[in-house]
């Protein structure tokens, strides 16, 4: 790390902390602009379960105290901030009184596993295909096939998910229809369980890859065209370098740089973007948790999930900022 100037590091660190603070504040303000009273919703749910509720006012006051919403706003805000720092988002109103953090801890590994893996695969495939669309040595077939495959990019993920489900799960029965793992296996660090997880995760991952690789491929194509016209690419060819070496070390190596920044930004968007995919595959990730929370107006859960999304985005952008001086030496120069 000695190669990164301290001022650069400090600058990024301050940006990181400020981003998280501002985002946490916004997440807190927005639900409070809504006229809905979460205590009344919880009461309504109790009433719906039991037919009727006696001493409604008393219970309401008790619920409000439990949720902490009977206190002045400013105190609520600082209590909230203090809680957020240790990932305490209060109790879920829908699955009362489960702590929100427990729900998130349950869902997060599934999403990280499925979504990050599919994002990485998409990133690699998309950029490679985008580069091949431009490379002059690519077989003609590749140049025709890739744009054709991009048709899938215009399909909403929910449709591609249903389509894949219908073909591979319903008709061919190669993969299970829904769920994160089989009902017959015990969750744990066993080979059976891992196999079941991969088996169940395959279709949701594929449906995400199929619809999103075009984003990377098209972006990469534009960047590659610019790099192709650069003087250093011309000189690389005039040096008599092997075409494949020019493709990797001169063209892709330079064109990929802005894509890496885009990758960091995508990490956060991915949870929000894949809500419906998780929903139709009944996959127990963050997306499904958020979806259900919105339906139930479960504000603490919405807040918690939003916070985690922002935290992930901010952290990945911070990480890319740290890595960037090593992959693009010009950045180090500017910072110094």
């Amino acid at each position: 790390m000695s190669r990164i100037p301290r001022s650069y590091l400090l600058n990024r660190l301050v940006t990181l902390v400020l981003t998280i603070l501002i985002a946490a504040t916004l997440i807190w303000i927005i639900p409070r602009l809504s006229p809905v009273d979460p205590a009344e919703i919880a009461l309504g749910r109790m009433a719906a379960g039991a037919g009727s509720v006696a001493n409604a006012d008393e219970i309401l006051a008790q619920l409000r105290a439990q949720m902490g919403i009977d206190q002045p706003l400013i105190i609520q805000y600082f209590k909230y901030l203090g809680g957020v720092l240790v990932f305490d988002f209060g109790l879920s109103t829908a699955s009362f009184p489960t702590p929100v953090s427990a729900l998130i801890a349950q869902a997060l590994p599934w999403t990280l596993g499925l979504m990050v893996l599919s994002l990485v695969i998409t990133f690699v495939i998309g950029n490679l295909l985008g580069a091949l669309m431009v490379w002059e040595r690519s077989p003609r077939l590749v140049k025709v096939a890739i744009p054709a495959a991009m048709v899938f990019t215009s399909i909403p993920p929910i449709l591609s998910g249903l389509l894949l489900m219908w073909i591979f799960a319903a008709k061919l029965q190669w993969f299970p229809l829904t769920g994160s793992y089989g009902l017959t296996v015990e969750p744990g660090w066993s080979w059976d369980f891992a196999q079941s997880v991969i088996h169940h995760g395959f279709l949701p991952a594929l449906s995400i890859i199929v619809v999103t690789f075009g984003f990377w491929a098209l972006g990469m194509r534009g960047l590659m065209i610019t790099v192709q016209g650069e003087d250093y690419t011309t000189l690389a060819k005039a040096k008599g370098l092997r075409p494949r070496y020019i493709l990797y070390r001169y063209m892709i190596r330079n064109a990929i740089l802005p894509q890496i920044t885009a990758f960091a930004l995508k990490i956060g968007l991915l949870i929000a973007g894949q809500v419906l995919v998780e929903r139709i595959f009944a996959y127990n990730g963050m997306g499904k948790l958020l979806y259900d929370a919105i339906l139930d107006q479960d504000f603490p859960v919405i807040q918690g999930v939003s916070y985690v999304i922002i935290l992930m985005t901010a952290l990945s952008v911070f990480l890319v900022d740290l890595v960037y001086p090593f992959i693009d030496p010009r950045v180090r120069h500017e910072a110094a």
Binding site: T234, R249, L257, P329
Partner: peptide
């Protein structure tokens, strides 16, 4: 032709400012 370039005929392109790979 690839083997001929540089070993037998070298081309120094216009615009030396950007003729070198910036990340190497």
């Amino acid at each position: 032709m690839r083997r001929t370039r540089l070993s037998r005929v070298a081309y120094i392109p216009q615009g030396a400012m950007n003729s070198l790979n910036p990340v190497m």
